[in-house]
Every structure is written in C-alpha cells, then in structure tokens.
Design a protein around this nucleic acid. Structure first.
Length: 476
DNA sequence: TGAAATGTTGGGGCG
DNA sequence: ACGCCCCAACATTTC
C-alpha cells in the first residue's frame, strides 16, 4: 500500500489540482493535509480578513473531500515537524504539493523539500497549481525578468495560454479514523467579536462558489467588462480575487472556460480585457519572484530618499476609518471594512490619496490592505501599491494624481456607490454628492470636512517628487 | 488604468 | 455685413 500526503496550502480545490491528481495516480492511500502555522510569513503572516476566508475555505474543502469518501487532516504548528509526524504515522512514501512563490514560502518549501528527501527518504514532488506560467518560465531575450507589463504579456501570449484543466477525482480512498485531526474551528481563524457580518453577506466561500461566480460572470458581465469594470456602482467585475488567492479556482480554469471567446465572438472584447487582468496577476508574481524585497521597499531606488510626511498617524487613521471627507474614498474604505473587498478602481483612488495627497508611505496602505482584504495577496498587493505610488515596475508616472471628486463623478455618476456605503450622504443631490462641502449646510451634518486641500496637496506631492526625480539610478 | 494649464477653434451675441 | 469679443468645446502640453 503506497501512501501519499497531499499538502494543501493555497490550492483549496479538488479540480485542476495537479498535486492531488498525482497522488490519485500513484498512491492507494491519500492523506489530504492542511497545516496551520500562524507564524509563517513573519511580518507578512496572514491578515485577519484572509483568516476569515481561510476558515470557511478549509471547511468547504473538508466537506468536498468527505463527499468523496476522504477528509482533510488539519494539523497545527511547524510545517516540517507536522509533515514528519504524519509521515511517521501513515508510512507515507510520497509528499505532493503545489508550489507557492512568496519569498517566505519559497524558502520554507525549499528547506522542507530538501529535508524530507534527505532525512526522511520520502519522494517529494511539487507542481504548478496557481499560475498560467511560473515566474521563471517567462523571460526576456537576455534571460532577465520583465519590468514592463506589455512585453511580458505579449511574451506570455506568444507561449500560448491554452490550458486543459485536470478533472476532480470522482472518489477518494478513506483516511483512517485513527489519524488525528484538529477541527477547523479550533484554529482561531474566526473573529472573537462578530465583525464579519458583512463578510457573510458578501461572500460564498469555496470551490463550488468560485465556479458559480465564474459562470455567472462569464454569462452576464463579461460582454460589458471593458466599460463596466471601472464602475464601482455596478457589478461589472468578476470578484474572483479571493477565490484565486486561496486557489479555489485556478487561472488555467478561467482561461479554459473563456476559451473560444475570441475578439470576433460575442463577449470576446470583454474576455480579452479580462484575460489581461489575469495577466496582471501573473506579472505581479513574476515581479515578486525577481524582486523579492518589493513588499517592503520601492523598486525604484530613487524613492529611498522620498520626503514622506512625518506625523501622519492622524491622517492615516482617518483614511482607515473612511472619514476623509471625500465620498468616493470613504465609500471604498467602508466597503473594505464591511466586506473585506474593495472595487479595483476605488483601490487606485484611495491609494493615490494616501500616498500622494497625504504623503503617507505606501507601505502603510499596503499593510492596512493586507489585514483587511479577503483577497490580500503579497504579489498583487505589492504591485498595486507600488504602481499607484509611482515607485514600481511599469508604474503610473508619479505625476498621475487622482482627483477623488472627478473620479467619483466619472465612475459613480449617479452616486449609488457612495450612497450605499456612506449613507449619511444619501440626502445630497447628485450635483454635489462627490463634493459635499459645496452642499447647503445642514444636509449632512455628520459628514466630516475634507482632511486635505486637493489643489495644494497635489502641488506638494509634485514638489516632493521633484526632490528625488533626478537622483541617479531609477531602478535596481 | 490623470489632471490642470495652456492653446486652438468656431459659433453666436452684439455694437 | 462685418469685426470683435466671449466662451464652450476640444486638443495639446505639462506636471
């Protein structure tokens, strides 16, 4: 009887899961494992909102495994010790997992792989279960990594995006009842005080929910995606990000299901634009792999000397609480707090205000997103913040400073997004909804005045950038 | 995947 | 009818 451990991490699905498929191929006994180590990741250990998602995703995966006759063996603590313990308990000859690419994951997984092979004499095989192309599979002619999205995306498309998803197993061998597993609800992933009410309303977690969301998106929103994706007031985006982050769905499954929706097909323009967004996720992983210091430091070395504001705690707090006095900003920050998610267009607007108008270091914003987003992803979060701050690869030029009033008027023209998340502004007429300081006094007495003057803070940010613009060496 | 400043044009009001 | 001005609308440049 050959036994194999399948170590689940951020690949919490049964379909198109190469590590699981490999186990089904070679082993008679399969032990699906999840190891909870809250310390893993160090400074970037999992945030609270993501922990909420993880809890439900593990419950969902366990349920799906049980329907196939198996179950999820959850353990707690150091991953290597836990795997060793399981190998000892089960006599497993194999350990399979799907690769991760965050710096802390790579160093941990490399260490464990070497130790298990050398000291425990088990076979270890790892697979690509999270990306269309792994970071080292796309490279420039000189062998280096890309720094600009468009050539990266062209190179990827040239290689072909075609993917044939692996089927989910139809049945799995039972896991011995003697094998100890801790219940998911003892991992401490759920909040002690019920701040997750809005989360429960906003999300259905798990592999089935991910597939349902993809199907609904492809059916209804995809044809208008190019336009609607910028509108926070309409459900024009896929909302697949947390499902993708936890691997409840693979990018390959998305590509496969959109296949055939070429530019000449109905909805094809939308499919093209959406695949490009999947490409940005791939680019984020590519960048994080080649520049692993970027979660903490600007890629553009000129920004080492950038004159960020000092004593910004008060404005950071106001931003976090959604009380900046700019409706589109406050709507976004409150949507984030309430649901663990924010529309991408609004993420750019709030990030621009924090990093430019308020001159708060972008890392502070990245930290807040890390803790509050259910889709918090080190690669994507890092790219997004550095892009907006103007210090990253293929970043927005620093002088692109979003005006929250104009952005609100352009992308939330009827104000329904603002009215939903900032209800005290609901009585305002459309004409001044995005600039309530111009409204008659008394219409919204509880809403704060703007935390900063847009025109002067814009000039201040441009001046700050002027101080570093001519520093040598614009990128590492 | 900006915004503001500046430049250009053309229609209409008006002397 | 004509020139002048105003300014909205659009285009270009600059940050």
């Amino acid at each position: 009887m050959t036994a194999a451990l399948v170590w689940f991490r951020r690949d919490l699905r049964l379909a198109d899961n190469p590590a699981l498929a490999r186990a089904v191929e070679v082993a008679e006994t399969i032990i699906p494992v999840y190891i909870h180590n809250p310390a893993h990741g160090g400074e970037w250990s999992m945030g609270r909102a993501s922990q909420w998602w993880l809890h439900h995703s593990l419950e969902s995966l366990d349920g799906a495994l049980r329907r196939l006759g198996s179950r999820l063996v959850v353990r707690h603590g150091d991953e290597q010790q836990a795997l060793r313990q399981l190998i000892a308990e089960t006599g497993a000859a194999w350990v399979f997992w799907n690769r991760l690419y965050d710096p802390a994951d790579i160093s941990r997984d490399t260490r464990i792989k070497q130790a298990l092979r050398a000291e425990d004499s088990v076979g270890v095989e790892t697979f690509n279960g999270s990306l269309i192309r792994e970071p080292w599979q796309v490279s420039r002619d000189d062998g280096g990594g890309y720094r600009v999205f468009t050539p990266f995306w062209k190179a990827m498309q040239k290689q072909g995006l075609k993917h044939i998803p692996l089927a989910a197993p139809v049945a799995l061998p039972p896991v011995s009842g003697d094998l100890r597993a801790v219940p998911v609800d003892t991992l401490g992933l759920l909040p002690r005080i019920p701040w997750d009410v809005g989360f429960r309303q906003a999300w259905a977690v798990g592999e089935d929910a991910a597939q349902a969301r993809l199907a609904a998106f492809a059916e209804s929103a995809l044809p208008d995606y190019r336009q609607a994706r910028d509108r926070p007031d309409v459900p024009g985006t896929s909302r697949l990000s947390p499902h993708l982050h936890f691997g409840e769905i693979s990018p390959g499954q998305i590509v496969a299901s959109l296949e055939g929706m070429g530019l000449d097909m109905p909805g094809g323009v939308g499919a093209d634009a959406y695949l490009r967004e999947v490409g940005w996720r791939e680019f984020a992983y590519h960048l994080l792999f080649h520049f692993p210091h970027t979660p903490d430091e600007a890629l553009d070395t000129r920004f080492a000397d950038f004159p960020w504001g000092s004593g910004y705690e008060a404005s950071l707090a106001v931003w976090q609480q959604g009380r900046t006095g700019f409706p589109i900003i406050d709507a976004g920050m409150r949507q984030l707090w309430a649901t663990g998610w924010m529309h991408n267009r609004v993420r750019m607007i709030v990030a621009s205000l924090l990093a430019k108008n308020l001159l708060v270091p972008w890392q502070e914003g990245a930290r807040w997103f890390w803790d509050t987003l259910v889709d918090a992803d080190l690669a994507c979060n890092t790219l997004g913040w550095q892009w907006t701050a103007g210090c990253g690869a293929d970043a927005a030029p620093y002088f692109r400073i979003f005006n929250p009033v104009l952005q609100g008027e352009k992308f939330d023209p009827h104000g329904s997004y603002v009215r939903r998340w900032v209800p005290e502004l609901a009585p305002l007429p459309d004409a001044c909804l995005h600039k309530p300081w111009e409204a008659p006094r008394g219409l919204c007495p509880d809403y704060p005045n703007p935390v900063v003057d847009l025109a002067s803070s814009r000039k201040r940010a441009l001046d700050a950038f002027g101080q570093i613009r001519n520093s040598p060496c614009s990128a590492i």
